[in-house]
Design a binder for these strands. Structure first.
Lengths: 199, 199
DNA sequence: TAACCCATGTAACCTGTTACATGATTAA
DNA sequence: TTAATCATGTAACAGGTTACATGGGTTA
C-alpha cells in the first residue's frame, strides 16, 4: 500500500541511499512501518522510473559507491495528494492473537509461555522507543516543527507497547486464575479512558 | 504468514464454507486478522490439497450448493505445532502514522481532519467490539473454556481501540495547541501503567 | 425494480519474504 | 581471524488486492 509513501516521507527530510533507508526503517520508522532492504531497492527503482525520485551517484573511496535519492517536485506533490486523501483504518494482523484464539487446542502452558515471551519482546521494544524519545526530545520548551510529527508517531509507539504489556499481564493472570473465575466487571474506566500523559 | 492458521483455527470450532469464513473474518476474527473472500478461497484449495482439510459437498435447494470444510487430524497437528513454535512480534504498518510522519509537508488542517476522521472510525469499531462483548459474555460467573480465549482476543481489540481514541485526542490537542508548547512531562504513569480493567 | 444475500470462483497484478550473490573496510 | 558495516542488487515464490464473472432468492 504505502511503502512508496513511507519512502517518500523519509526522503522529504534529506536525500538518502537505499542502505540508509533500510537502516532508517529499522529504527526511526519502525513504530509504524516495516520494510526489508529488498523491498526498498525494488520500490526505489520504481519510484525513480515514475519520476518521483532522482538518483545522484556518489563515488566513494574505500567503500562502495552509492546512490543518493532525492525527492522531485512531482514526488512531493504525489505524497501531499495522498496525505490529503482520507484513508481507512489499517487492517489488524497479529500472530499471537491467532494463537490465543485457537488456545484451547493446546495445553495452557504453551500459551502462557508464548504470552511471557511476547511480553518480554514488547518490553524490549518499549525500552528502545523510550531511548529514542530521550535522544530526540530531551530539551525543554517548544519542539521545532520538524519534530512535532515525529514525536506524535513515537508517542503512539510507546502507548501501543505499554498497552501490549498491560494486556499480556492481564491475560497471564486471567489464564492462571483457572479462567473465568476472576473475570472483572464489564463497564470500566475504558468507557471514558483516563489518558496516559504524553511521553 | 498465518492466514492458513487463522482459517484452521476457525475450523476447529465447527465446519464452515468459504462464504461462512469470509463473514466470520469480517466480524468475530476482525480483532486480529483480515482477509477477503478471494484470499480465503485460494487458501482453502491449498489447505485441502495439502490434506489439512476435507471438503463435504452440500446440495441445497433454492440456494447455491456449498462446500463445508472440515479440519483433519493432520490439520489439527499442523496448527498445534505452529502454536507451540515461538513467534516474533507482528510487524506494525499504519497509514495514518505515515501521514503524520510527513505531516509538516501539508497544511495542519489536513492532518487534523484526518485525525478526526480516524478517531471516528476507531470509535465505531470500539462500539462494534463492545456489542460483540455484550452478546458473548453477558452471563455472570465463569466463562466456558471455549470462550476464554475468544474473550482475551476481543479484550485486546477493545483495549487497542480505546488506546487509539485516547491517542487521537491527545494528538489533536497537541497540534491545536500550536505544537510543542503544551508538551507534558516525559516521565509519566506509563512507566508503571495502571492497567485498564477487563471488559 | 433495485439492492442485497447466498455461494463460488478466475485472472492479473502488486507487495512481501527468503535465499543467494559480491566484495572491500574496520573493529573485537 | 571472525564478524560487522557499508552498499547494491537478482530470482523465485508466497501472500494480498482489485476487477471481473455468474445467478437464483429475498427484502424494501
Amino acid at each position: 500500500m504505502s511503502l512508496a509513501h513511507a519512502i517518500l516521507s523519509a526522503l522529504m527530510d534529506c536525500p538518502r541511499s537505499g542502505y540508509d533507508l533500510a537502516k532508517y526503517f529499522d529504527s526511526s520508522v519502525s513504530f509504524f512501518w516495516d520494510a526489508t532492504h529488498q523491498q526498498i531497492y525494488r520500490e526505489l527503482s520504481k519510484l525513480e522510473a515514475e519520476g518521483y525520485l532522482t538518483a545522484e551517484k556518489i563515488d566513494q573511496e574505500g567503500r562502495p559507491n552509492k546512490k543518493l535519492f532525492h525527492i522531485t517536485e512531482t514526488g512531493t506533490a504525489f505524497l501531499q495528494d495522498w496525505i490529503a486523501q482520507p484513508s481507512e483504518l489499517s487492517p489488524v494482523k497479529d500472530d499471537l492473537l491467532v494463537k490465543l484464539f485457537a488456545g484451547k487446542s493446546v495445553p495452557k502452558e504453551i500459551i502462557l509461555k508464548e504470552l511471557a515471551h511476547h511480553r518480554q519482546q514488547h518490553c524490549k521494544r518499549l525500552e528502545e522507543y523510550r531511548a529514542i524519545a530521550q535522544d530526540l526530545f530531551q530539551s525543554t520548551g517548544a519542539l521545532p516543527i520538524e519534530n512535532q510529527f515525529q514525536y506524535l508517531t513515537l508517542h503512539h509507539g510507546i502507548r501501543s507497547e505499554t498497552g501490549w504489556l498491560a494486556w499480556c499481564d492481564e491475560a497471564i493472570l486471567f489464564l492462571q486464575g483457572e479462567g473465568g473465575l476472576k473475570r472483572q466487571q464489564t463497564e470500566s474506566r475504558s468507557q471514558n479512558p483516563e489518558s496516559q500523559s504524553m511521553e
